[in-house]
């Protein structure tokens, strides 16, 4: 007769720990401290409990209990819509918006992290049940490492080269190297942009990357991340200095323009490199037959 209490507590602790480590309140400003985090830690705890009791329920054997687990796991689907609703309702009061693609990506990640929590708890408690409790530490460490490592996704730096570029004017047209950004009418705004503006080119490494950078949602995500770290000189009713990312239509790369509170071009480049590639924006032309043919 195994000590089920031991099995369950190891599972719960490992699962909860996994959720805690995956819950990072970073520059994306979400979830906010402390209430948003508490919500997710509480849900993570419930998820860990669910995963942990599964093994004893099978070992008992109590198969009906296992079916209830499946029912309870359905509840975690609600998390995605909860996150989506929260972030969407906050969009209207933002100067620089995240965009729907980014919100959907964040919501999906939050849902998936709870499943990872369940899995971690399940595996850890399973190891305790089958072997013995010292092995739980190894199993939990591997699970948590795997959750963090393999769920981090790709970054813009992986799919594109980011190079500094010159912000200049062609009469009234604001340009970043050879990319036309917008028409600026006022002379004083032009002078300000020439003085404080920063520009970079985001050059895709292949055709997949080019399609990814084409998506407006991906561009909004890049701009949002950059502005949430470096700041911008946009204010309500003064949108002249709004950061923009536009495409060089012939060559397919992006020109990004920004007037930041902290004008450090090398950090701007580092930040852009770390922006996640959104799942909904990923280009996949190179995995299709004709896409590959057309690429060369």
């Amino acid at each position: 007769m195994q000590n089920y209490l031991l099995v369950i507590s190891f599972g719960v602790v490992a699962g909860f720990l996994a959720r805690w480590i995956m819950l990072r309140s970073d520059y994306r400003h979400y979830p906010t401290y402390p209430h948003g985090q508490l919500t997710h830690l509480a849900l993570g705890f419930i998820a860990a409990c669910l995963g942990a009791v599964a093994v004893p329920a099978i070992a008992k054997p109590d198969y009906v209990a296992v079916t209830f687990l499946a029912l309870a796991a359905q509840q975690f689907r609600e998390i995605r819509s909860m996150e989506r609703n929260t972030l969407e309702s906050l969009e209207s009061t933002k100067l620089i918006r995240r965009g729907n693609d980014y919100i959907e990506g964040i919501a999906r990640v939050f849902e998936a992290r709870n499943y990872l929590t369940i899995l971690t708890a399940l595996i850890t408690s399973g190891v305790v049940q089958i072997f013995s409790w010292p092995y739980a530490f190894i199993a939990a460490a591997i699970c948590i490492y795997g959750s963090v490592k393999f769920m981090s996704g790709r970054k813009i730096g992986d799919i594109a080269d980011i190079v500094p570029a010159q912000v200049h004017f062609d009469k009234s047209l604001l340009m970043v190297d050879d990319v036309v950004i917008m028409n600026v009418g006022l002379e004083q705004i032009r002078q300000k942009i020439e003085k404080d503006g920063m520009g970079v080119l985001i050059k895709p490494k292949n055709d997949n990357a080019r399609l990814t950078l084409d998506v407006p949602g991906q561009r909004m995500a890049i701009i949002h991340d950059v502005v949430s770290i470096l700041g911008s000189k946009v204010d309500m009713n003064e949108m002249d200095l709004a950061p923009l990312a536009r495409k060089q239509v012939d060559k397919g790369y992006l020109g990004l323009f920004l007037v930041a509170n902290e004008p450090d071009i090398q950090y701007l480049i580092e930040i852009i490199k770390r922006v996640p590639v959104l799942e909904s924006a990923q280009g996949t032309t190179l995995s299709s037959f004709y896409g590959k043919k057309a690429a060369d």
Partner: peptide, 16 residues
């Protein structure tokens, strides 16, 4: 142009 843009929340564009 500048005043109108600030009041109306728009951006000034130049048709050259």
């Amino acid at each position: 142009s500048m005043l109108l843009a600030r009041i109306l929340g728009g951006i000034v564009h130049d048709l050259e």
